[in-house]
Design a protein around this nucleic acid. Structure first.
Length: 950
RNA sequence: GCGGGGGUACCCGAGCAUGGCCAAAGGGGCAAGGCUUAGGACCUUGUGACAUAGGUCUCCGAGGGUUCAAAUCCCUCCCCCCGCACCA
């Protein structure tokens, strides 16, 4: 026997499979199609072991479906859209050392690095790397004839068509958008993964309502997150030490902090600083407050921050703890009052109750300050907490009081929106966006919230689209269940989504406005429909210029007269019909697999774009979400480095080992920590299977009583494994194949099984079950039986006589007897040289037979039993009780109804038990105990013989 | 805040929907023995407590409840994790 050498085997079979074309997908009307994809990767660097988790799952399902007899289409592509490929290329141009090192570490040569300084070359380079060093090397059974990528001309044609359709259906719109952007590089994503950032991933974009206070023909502006509290305004807070500016904003003059005006420049069209003004110069003056139209006084405070809002705060002492305490402090601070000439001016500045909430009643600020014992306006942490508490309670349970004009009686939640909108409409307020903490771009520049005028949006808020998508989602097969429960919710809150960008981005030009480039999420929704066409492009049958609107309309929507379409596209009728029928054959997509990061990013628009554009019969049928593979410190990510290069790991352990690790070491629906020791255990597992299959091959004995048991157990497990695979329960299925079945084979050998024919049957069956998970080793081992291409052979068929409940029951019985004997030997202080096994008295077996006829009668059968059986009355009643209890508690009726001759079964296993316990075994038939010194035999009950050891 | 998912033995992890062969699968780790002693190898056994006959007791985040019977159903509480968008 040769040792298991995965590297050699894997290379050999990958080459042979390619020659044989086992991954090829051709239309075959006689077979049921199954179409699946994984979410194609963005081109941003080398793939990591987390990607391979998803690809392995996809391949396992693809191979299983092939074994099941489906005609499987499994294509892939790549997604260079966006700026990731671009920025890597740029970094290499600039010679960033980490990036160069990163490339080299992953096997790029000097020439490669030189070449990929051109972004388009970088895309080509990575396309090759992904295909040759990752997918092919991992034995992922993709048909690369369908390969495409999102910056190729043909793909772009497809995307343009898609956007024309969206527009046609009223699903595109244009409006201003406020998004996060780096002041140097343009739009960036602010999210915890910090893909684009060097700092501030947890920041939130906040929308402030900017209140305008009339002041000498200008407006003092104050930002608030709680517009509904304007009714409780009593004064303004200004920092006397702070230098504010006067800025011209869209024709008005606003007073605000320097920091605020810098931010506003990105959000308003005409912002110009024209003057400065010190805080102290405003103290004591009066301004006209919005909505309430009362004159309120400007007072000094120290808690304001020029970098938060406008650096000027409107004071609502009833509901804002900061305001309440600042006001109290000021009233007691005679020096300050004197300094600003405020004596006698602020006595009547008092909190005005505006909101009543469940937990805090009215005037919550005062209450919470006493409760939390807050001493001063500098007690930041406590004040922050207090503010949060009041806000939470107020937002959910609060009601506006009578002091709130038309909004009285309204819930805070509702009033908040309405007050804001009304104030903006009347010109008393505006909107200002800010980030909750400092955010810095990867390039080192500041990230701000900026206005993008006339941004294009896909209208995912569209009611009809939302409803249709939600409904369809409930009919889809979505794994895991938690996401199936969730996705309709997600679709529900999905708002309009910007779909194009300006700047140096790779992607498709927006068809109605060439300045814009369609962004990465928007051009990766309908693409599974395009792979089918990409093959024809790859085959040279169609060119990008043939792909006109009429062409796609006909292929995807069946629109238009074929003669016309042929004329307009310059393609023959046959070609067009051919492509159309390919699409009709393969579509809809059966399964789309992707990581959990896609749950709120890719899958909803993927589904909604299908619903929005294609006919219902082509809407996708399934989604499978896998969680991440994480390193010790968190997610393994492309951008932040990560684990060692995959090709090296694959050589070290073999890809079958890695695939088995993915399939079995954890449920797909949890994050899994990468652990090399664990991987090594799977390598050992495959070694042991290798050895076991060789042993099975060498076994050439004759029939044996245990044969029927093993055969039955095997086919029972095959059925179980199939059920798991139907549900995409990959881990459970792998457990059956790699653990349950081998351990039954071990038991078989242990029991002395040696049937060569049966071993052939089971080994071949087991290898077929292994194909989806570890195809290379399975194929190699199957060579011993001269099977030509095991991966094409189909699943093991379950013979009609394959499963015998009786055989399984009998063997279970022996296992139990063995366990009982072992337990007795463990605890009893006996030699254990002789073991006597007494089967139950004949009348007991008969009694059981009668009881299970009518177990519902309970003890009612006693009379009948006494009459019919020759049994000791006392024992009988005790026994009947026992059996009834057993039936009731364990629901054992099924197994009782199978006939079993215990005496014969035990005799058959006697040699085995003697060997096991190195003891003499003596078995007695019912009522046939010739030697029984302790009267053990009376304790025997059917299915549980009495045992006496000496 | 909104929405979702969890807490099971040394660890990971099944079971929980349909309560009862559940002291609780499987794997890992650890221990003992065997076998080899060049490979992180392989095989057996053990791994809640007690028990000189197959038994008993305790146990599935905490506390209550329903039931003949609860890891499983109901209630309360505590704790942990994840997603919330222009990031592929």
């Amino acid at each position: 026997m040769k040792d298991y050498d995965p590297v050699e085997i894997e290379k050999k079979w990958q080459e042979r499979w390619e020659e044989e074309g086992v991954d090829r997908a051709e239309v075959d009307e006689s077979r049921e199609p199954f179409y699946l994809i994984f979410a194609y990767p963005g081109v941003s660097g080398f793939l990591h072991l987390g990607h391979m988790r998803c690809y392995s799952y996809t391949d396992i399902i693809a191979r299983y479906k092939r074994m099941e007899g489906y005609n499987v289409l499994f294509p892939t592509g790549t997604h260079p859209t966006g700026n990731q490929a671009y920025s890597l290329s740029k970094h290499l141009q600039e010679g960033v050392p980490e990036k160069i090192d990163y490339m080299k570490r992953n096997g790029a040569t000097e020439e490669d690095i030189e070449r990929v300084k051109d972004p388009m070359e970088l895309v080509t380079y990575f396309n090759e790397v992904y295909i040759d060093k990752y997918w092919k090397k991992f034995g992922i059974s993709i048909d690369f004839d369908y390969f495409t990528y999102s910056t190729r001309e043909d793909y772009k044609q497809f995307i343009k068509w898609q956007f024309r359709k969206l527009k046609e259906r009223g699903l595109l719109t244009q409006k201003d958008y406020f998004g996060t952007e780096c002041i140097e590089c343009g739009p960036v994503a602010v999210d915890p993964s910090e893909t684009d950032l060097s700092k501030g991933g947890t920041a939130e974009k906040q929308e402030y309502t900017l209140l305008k206070f009339e002041y000498n023909g200008r407006y003092i502006t104050a930002a608030t997150l709680r517009p509904e509290t304007v009714f409780g305004q009593t004064n303004l807070w200004v920092d006397p030490e702070e230098g504010y500016v006067v800025a011209e904003v869209e024709g008005e003059e606003w007073i605000l902090s320097k920091e605020a005006v810098e931010k506003l420049k990105y959000q308003k069209d005409d912002v110009k600083v024209i003057d400065t003004i010190m805080g102290e110069d405003m103290i004591g003056d009066y301004v006209k407050a919005p909505v309430i139209h009362r004159d309120i006084i400007i007072l000094p405070a120290s808690f304001t921050d020029p970098d938060v809002g406008t650096g000027i705060v409107t004071s609502v002492p009833s509901d804002a703890p900061y305001d309440w305490i600042a006001l109290r402090d000021l009233k007691q601070d005679e020096d300050t009052l004197k300094r600003f000439g405020l004596e006698g001016k602020i006595e009547d500045v008092e909190p005005i109750p505006i909101i009543e909430s469940k937990d805090w009643g009215i005037n919550p600020a005062e209450k919470i300050i006493h409760e939390m014992d807050i001493q001063s306006q500098r007690d930041d942490d406590k004040l922050e907490t207090a503010t949060q508490k009041i806000y939470k309670s107020g937002f959910h349970t609060g009601k506006m009081l009578d002091s709130c004009q038309d909004y009285s009686g309204m819930s805070v939640q509702k009033a908040k929106e309405m007050v804001k909108e009304d104030m903006i409409a009347s010109g008393e307020a505006d909107i200002m966006y800010d980030l909750s903490e400092e955010v810095v771009c990867r390039c080192g520049a500041k990230v701000v919230v900026g206005k993008i005028p006339d941004q294009w949006f896909i209208r995912y808020s569209d009611e009809e689209l939302t409803e249709k998508s939600k409904k369809h989602a409930t009919d889809m097969e979505i794994k895991p269940q938690s996401y199936a429960d969730n996705i309709t919710e997600t679709i529900g809150w999905f708002q309009d989504r910007s779909c194009a960008r300006k700047g140096n981005w790779m992607g498709t030009e927006f068809p109605f406005d060439e300045e814009w480039v369609i962004e990465a999420i928007a051009d990766s929704t309908l693409y599974p429909a395009y792979y089918i066409l990409a093959k024809h492009y790859n085959d040279g049958i169609i060119e990008a210029e043939n792909m006109t609107e009429d062409f796609f309309d006909h292929v995807y929507l069946g629109k238009g007269n074929i003669e016309d379409v042929s004329k307009k596209t310059g393609l023959s009728k046959e070609t067009i019909e051919d492509i159309r029928s390919d699409f009709k054959y393969w579509y809809p997509l059966d399964l789309n697999l992707g990581g959990k990061e896609h749950m709120t990013v890719h899958f909803p628009p993927f589904l909604m774009n299908h619903v929005g554009i294609l006919d219902e019969e082509y809407w996708p049928k399934g989604i499978f979400v896998n969680w991440w593979l994480v390193g010790k410190g968190g997610k393994i990510s492309k951008s932040k480095g990560g684990a060692e290069p995959i090709p090296d790991t694959a050589e070290k352990y073999g890809v079958d080992t890695l695939r088995l690790f993915y399939a079995h070491s954890a449920s797909p629906f949890v994050d899994k920590e990468w652990d090399e020791d664990e991987v090594f255990n799977y390598r050992k597992k495959l070694n042991s299977i290798w050895n076991k299959v060789h042993r099975m091959k060498e076994t050439d004995g004759g029939k044996n009583p245990v044969d029927e048991y093993l055969r039955s157990r095997f086919y029972s497990l095959v059925m179980k494994g199939n059920e798991y695979m139907q549900d995409h329960e990959l881990r459970k299925a792998a457990s059956v194949v790699y653990y349950d079945i081998p351990s039954e084979i071990d038991w078989y050998f242990k029991r002395g099984g040696c049937n060569g024919e049966l071993m052939d049957e089971i080994a071949k069956g087991m290898l077929k079950l292994m194909v989806p998970f570890t195809p290379h080793i399975a194929e190699e081992l199957s060579d011993m039986w001269n099977i030509e291409y095991l991966v094409k052979s189909g699943l093991p068929k379950i013979p009609e006589d394959g499963i015998s409940k009786k055989a399984e029951l009998e063997e279970e019985y022996i296992k139990e007897v063995r366990a009982d004997i072992k337990q007795i030997l463990d605890i009893a202080d006996v030699e254990g040289e002789k073991i006597h096994i007494y089967t139950a008295a004949g009348w007991k077996e008969k009694a059981v037979g009668m009881i299970i006829q009518q177990p519902e009668k309970g003890m009612g059968v006693m009379g009948e039993l006494t009459k019919k059986l020759d049994a000791p009355a006392k024992q009988l009643s005790k026994f009947v009780q026992h059996i009834l209890k057993d039936l009731r508690e364990k629901g054992a009726k099924d197994s009782w109804s199978i006939d079993m001759n215990e005496y014969e079964v035990l005799k058959g296993a006697a040699a085995f038990l003697e060997e096991e316990f190195q003891a003499q075994i003596k078995i007695y038939p019912p009522d046939g105990s010739s030697y029984d010194p302790t009267n053990k035999s009376s304790q025997a009950i059917p299915r549980k013989p009495a045992i006496y050891v000496e």
